[in-house]
């Protein structure tokens, strides 16, 4: 028991400061002037603003970063890297959103949504970067809503249906561990925007990994049923590992070694040592080349249906 931990979970020192969006600002509401609702709240409790976050805001982690693609950086290569990482994040966020109102406990609703929002935020920044780097100046929605399944570059593990909570946790553990290893290395990217996005993502992913690891241990070392479900989930995920490892943008061997080492450590603590056999053969980066499972098309159909039904609309 640790009576007075100074930081919950992992260090967040590297996170871009993210002040609340101050939605309670009086006067800017369409309802301003009615009852002075927010004004009176602000007067009585003006000290709360530093303590409470009101929804998850998206502040600009690129503040002060020059967004021109620097000379010497290959725009096309940068664009495809951003697209791959964005697609991974968007597809994962979509699956996490499917948990909404179905989580095993109310506190987990909040936690899973936080993770989904983090990934969605990463996807948006990366799509925007992609639009600059590929020279088309397309916005984030052009990539998310107006590409077909074969144009998506996410790893296929991300698109598999949620399954039970054990499967979702195992997938989150694998993908957050791997993505953290990848993005950690990209904090030193030559492109300053990608480096800034990676710097924002690292503490987020560290938390995702910790969340998934804690749950993996609870489920693996919980009841007979949860242990059985974890084994089944690991067996289901294992065949997708070679593809994941084949999809690292750089430092493939080091990323793989780091990922495997973390997974082994977690699984050992979860009484699941050896339950995730890591195949030796080199994988094929199917998703990165647009070859997907049958699950991606319906996922995208749902994601894109309203946007495509009203192509002229603004939202």
């Amino acid at each position: 028991m640790s009576p007075a931990p100074e930081t919950p979970g992992t260090s967040q020192a590297a996170v871009t400061p993210e002040p609340p969006e101050s939605p309670a600002a009086p006067g800017s509401s369409p309802a301003a002037g009615t009852d002075h609702v927010y004004l009176s709240l602000a007067e009585e409790h003006d000290d709360d603003s530093g303590r409470w976050a009101f929804g998850t805001g998206f502040t600009d982690p690129l503040h002060g970063v020059d967004t021109a693609v620097p000379p010497g950086v290959d725009g096309a290569a940068l664009a495809s890297l951003c697209l791959e990482l964005a697609d991974d994040a968007l597809v994962q966020a979509q699956r996490l959103a499917e948990w909404c109102t179905r989580a095993p406990e109310l506190e987990e609703e909040v936690a899973l949504a936080n993770i989904g929002l983090d990934l969605l935020g990463q996807a948006r920044l990366l799509y925007a970067r992609c639009g600059r780097a590929d020279g088309t100046d397309r916005g984030e929605d052009a990539y998310a809503y107006f590409r077909d399944p074969a144009d998506f570059r996410n790893v296929t593990l991300a698109e598999l249906p949620n399954g039970d909570f054990a499967f979702s946790i195992v997938r989150l553990l694998v993908l957050s561990t791997w993505r953290l290893a990848v993005l950690h290395r990209l904090t030193g990217a030559q492109d300053p925007v990608l480096a800034a996005v990676a710097a924002k993502a690292v503490p987020e992913l560290t938390y995702h990994r910790q969340y998934a690891a804690q749950w993996a241990v609870r489920l693996g070392d919980g009841t007979e049923e949860s242990h059985r479900r974890m084994r089944a989930a690991l067996a289901q995920v294992a065949p997708y590992l070679p593809e994941v490892f084949a999809s690292s943008p750089a430092d493939g061997a080091a990323v793989r070694a780091e990922t495997v080492s973390v997974l082994e450590q977690v699984l050992a603590e979860a009484e699941l040592a050896g339950a995730l056999p890591v195949p030796d053969e080199p994988g094929s980066a199917d998703g990165r080349e647009g070859r997907h499972t049958a699950h991606l098309a319906p996922l995208l159909a749902e994601l894109q249906q309203v946007a495509r039904a009203h192509p002229e609309a603004t939202w």
């Binding site: 929002l117 948006r124 984030e140 994601l303 939202w315």
Partner: peptide, 9 residues
């Protein structure tokens, strides 16, 4: 199904 990523978030 939100029709933009901003609305989704």
């Amino acid at each position: 199904r939100a029709p933009s990523l901003r609305r989704k978030a």
